[in-house]
């Protein structure tokens, strides 16, 4: 696509902010920096850069990380049958699946409940720190990392739905009953808050240090 003003500005970057414009991230309308913050087309709040983007990201991310601790310590599911009660944490659930030979499903759960959340904590912190301390890192790889975290974050909810389905379905009284554990609430909160953290981080802040294409 043709960059605006490539003849006049040469290799220099002309972004909306420098030209006195801000764009609505919901519908794309451009308006002048000094008009009100509400988009005249779709009603969304239009800011050149999301206000307090880093502060919000850190707040959501820290809550997400804190909630991830009880999510792993406490059981997410209790199975009550006549052979006795067993309780599963996120990790023991993965081990149980692998032991029973369902390696593929065990891998999916391991990926969705452990790899994705931990990777998101690391990546979002890295991006926020790199903006805060103006680290020199490849803009393209940081931009891609941000886009990937936004895309795959929601898939962590798999385990929450597994517990919800099992608990709702398996209510056979004394024979077999599955009860959701406290851990799953913490896990669901952790996923929701990290999703909010990823969407609070304004990717335009990453590019603000860039002066050349």
């Amino acid at each position: 696509m043709q960059r605006y003003g490539v003849e006049q500005a040469g290799p220099h970057i002309v972004n909306a902010l420098d030209s006195g414009l801000k764009s609505c991230t919901a519908c794309g309308v451009l308006q002048s920096l000094d008009v009100e913050d509400s988009c005249h087309r779709c009603g969304a709040t239009v800011r050149s850069r999301r206000v307090h983007s880093l502060q919000r990201t850190w707040a959501f991310l820290i809550v997400g990380m804190l909630a991830y601790i009880p999510a792993n310590i406490f059981p997410i599911m209790l199975t009550r049958s006549f052979t006795g009660d067993t309780s599963d944490t996120i990790f023991s659930g993965v081990i149980l699946l692998a032991d029973s030979g369902s390696y593929f499903v065990a891998f999916i759960i391991f990926f969705a409940s452990i790899v994705i959340p931990v990777a998101k904590f690391v990546i979002i912190s890295l991006l926020a720190l790199s903006i805060q301390f103006k680290w020199e890192m490849s803009l393209h790889s940081r931009h891609n990392l941000h886009r990937i975290t936004e895309l795959i974050g929601r898939w962590s909810m798999i385990d929450v739905f597994v517990v919800a389905v099992l608990a709702a379905l398996i209510q056979l009284g004394a024979i077999l009953t599955i009860i959701p554990g406290v851990g799953i609430n913490a896990f669901a909160l952790s996923v929701v808050f990290t999703m909010l953290a990823a969407s609070s981080l304004d990717p335009r802040l990453l590019w603000d240090g860039d002066k050349h294409v």
């Binding site: 960059r3 605006y4 335009r204």
Partner: peptide, 8 residues
């Protein structure tokens, strides 16, 4: 919306 660069 990703990097604020202006385009025609």
């Amino acid at each position: 919306p990703g990097c604020d660069l202006l385009h025609t």
